[in-house]
Computed example of a mutant assay.
Amino acid sequence: MGSADPGAARTTIRARAPLRLGLAGGGTDLSPYCEDFGGAVLNCTIDKYAYAFVSARNDDNVVFRAVDLGIEETFPLSAPSNGKLALHAGVYRHFVTKFADGIPFAATITTNVDAPAGSGLGSSSALVVALVDALRAYLDVPLGPYDVAHLAFFIERIDLGLAGGKQDQYASAFGGVNFIEFLSGDRVIVNPLRMPDAVLNEVETSIVVSFSGQSRQSAAIIDNQTAGMKSGTVRTLDALHQLKADAIDMKRALLQGKVDEMATILNRSWISKKATADAVTNPQLDALYEIGRRAGALGGKVSGAGGGGYMMFIVPPEERFRLVTALNEAGALATPVKFTALGCETWQVR
């Protein structure tokens, strides 16, 4: 795609990438399952974001800042090193190598995220998408949303070796409600779902998310799931086959506006999800699920790999206030959600 002249960019670039809710199929985007069998997920982006800001500097330093974590690291251009902010450094290094002729450029790269790490909302991958898109715009590199998503996946999963699947990067780059297929040969097909506003409003008004109060370390869970895939463990593979079937069924129910059926599929997926690895659930999550069901939820499951983070529930809109109240009284921060139609957005400030 050619290199760019970082000296030509003297404005501040801002990017925001939406977080996502995984409605069905999560786990089938992991390797080697998606290469061997083909994966499918249904997800939607919500109005929580990862932000990345890139500004030029007048000295010979590169500065990485994560204001939500209270971390700031400064490195000389002669030796930009690894520190605590591995995602910042990984994206920066890749752009220097691939798009700036290997010449480090002085910049301040600042980020923050609307949800804690380990939330199960794809926050880490959304942050990488925001960083990639911000540096793409800063260096004027011609990358489309498929390119941005693939590059974010490559940096996070291959370059940095962080465990996880592929759905988060594509959801964040494209935005909206998407049925995403993950095929052999590293092929990904994003299918945007279009539905009447009345259907979208009904589904949106029927969803409640609740933070369990504990962030989870997804790597151990994903490693456990991956080991089951590689060894051909029947319990793991059967559960993943069911999760993929649930994604297809959930897409059909969503397009038809059958919220009750979506809740049934959500419950079924939660059972299958728990069968993929022992650490997917714990007593706190099980208790939260039961509180939700007693307060009127028709269905629920954890968002993301499991072990903590956010749980999502489907509830009749008339019962939503009761559900939110019960979850909050139990100490789990519960809120409605707002869907977003746009993926990662980037703009410049002079």
Rank of each mutant, 00 (worst) to 15 (best):
V190N: 04
D197T: 13
V128M: 03
V190E: 04
D159T: 15
Y138M: 01
G164I: 02
A107S: 14
R187D: 13
D133H: 13
F179G: 01
L162W: 00
P196S: 10
D147W: 06
P116H: 05
F153V: 07
S119R: 03
M195S: 12
T97A: 14
A117C: 01
G90T: 13
A137R: 15
H150M: 08
V132F: 11
G90W: 09
H94R: 15
E156D: 14
P104D: 09
Y170M: 05
V190K: 04
A115S: 13
R136N: 12
A163G: 09
P116K: 11
G102H: 10
L160Y: 06
Y138P: 00
D140H: 13
L87D: 02
F153S: 12
L135Q: 07
V203H: 08
N112P: 00
D197A: 15
R187V: 15
L85T: 02
P192K: 05
L135Y: 11
E202P: 00
S119N: 10
A149R: 06
R93Q: 14
V96G: 01
R136V: 10
L121A: 07
G164W: 03
V188Y: 06
I155W: 07
Y146W: 05
I103E: 14
L121G: 02
L85F: 08
G102W: 05
P192E: 08
D186L: 10
K98Y: 06
A149Y: 06
T97F: 01
N178T: 09
F154S: 11
M195Y: 11
F99P: 00
L200S: 13
E156C: 07
S172D: 09
A198L: 13
L139D: 03
A106L: 12
G90Y: 11
V141L: 05
E202V: 02
